[in-house]
């Protein structure tokens, strides 16, 4: 019962914050609401017995990635509201996007409510997970079954670091030529 209540509260906070992300004029506010959305999602993860995911959701997402966002906003000095101009040049963009969004939500709702989700049941019931520990299980799987994707992920991160540096650094030589 408590869990149900918690879900409703957290779900509502998530939706409201997500809407605020979209409709806030100031990008800094958007970023802060996004952080709140992520934290609420972390609570939902705990409700789903995914404690490790909840932890990295807070640390990586709400922490590291969002700091990066705020940092860039600050760097570009974008805290003014007039970045986007006073009016939208594409008149029909906003209404059609919202209508389409409504249709999409309705359709997703219809699908989820009318479908009986089936599948092969795994061995990790919440009880067995709590005996071993969620983090330990995730770690074990990462280094056994998913060791290859795990290594690929590290290469990906490395490539991303290099890419970010190259893209973001000032092209001093070119500027000198100009």
């Amino acid at each position: 019962m408590l869990a149900g209540l918690l879900f409703i509260i957290m779900g509502l906070i998530t939706i409201v914050c997500a809407l605020c992300v979209v409709f806030q004029k100031n990008p800094v506010y958007s970023a802060i609401f996004l952080i709140q959305t992520m934290v609420s999602l972390a609570v939902l993860y705990v409700l789903l017995h995914a404690q490790f995911i909840a932890a990295i959701q807070v640390m990586v997402y709400a922490g590291a990635i969002m700091v990066l966002f705020v940092f860039v906003i600050m760097l570009l000095n974008l805290n003014k509201t007039d970045v986007e101009g006073d009016y939208d040049k594409l008149l029909f963009q906003k209404p059609s996007a919202i209508i389409l969004g409504f249709i999409l939500v309705v359709m997703i709702g219809v699908v989820t409510l009318n479908t009986v989700f089936q599948g092969t049941q795994g061995e990790y019931t919440p009880e067995s997970i709590s005996q071993i520990g969620n983090t330990q299980l995730v770690g074990k799987m990462l280094f056994t079954k998913y060791v290859f994707p795990f290594e690929i992920a590290s290469v990906l991160l490395f490539a991303a670091v290099l890419g970010a540096i190259i893209l973001a650094k000032k092209q001093i030589i070119k500027e000198k030529e100009v």
Binding site: K89, L90, Q93, S96, A97, L100, I103, L104, M107, V110, V111
Partner: peptide, 24 residues
């Protein structure tokens, strides 16, 4: 081909909605 990326993105969403609708 307006040049507005958001316009293209709208087309993507429209396409997605139509596909889901059709499969429904």
């Amino acid at each position: 081909q307006t040049g507005y990326v958001r316009n293209y993105a709208l087309s993507i969403l429209l396409g997605g909605v139509i596909i889901i609708f059709c499969s429904l």
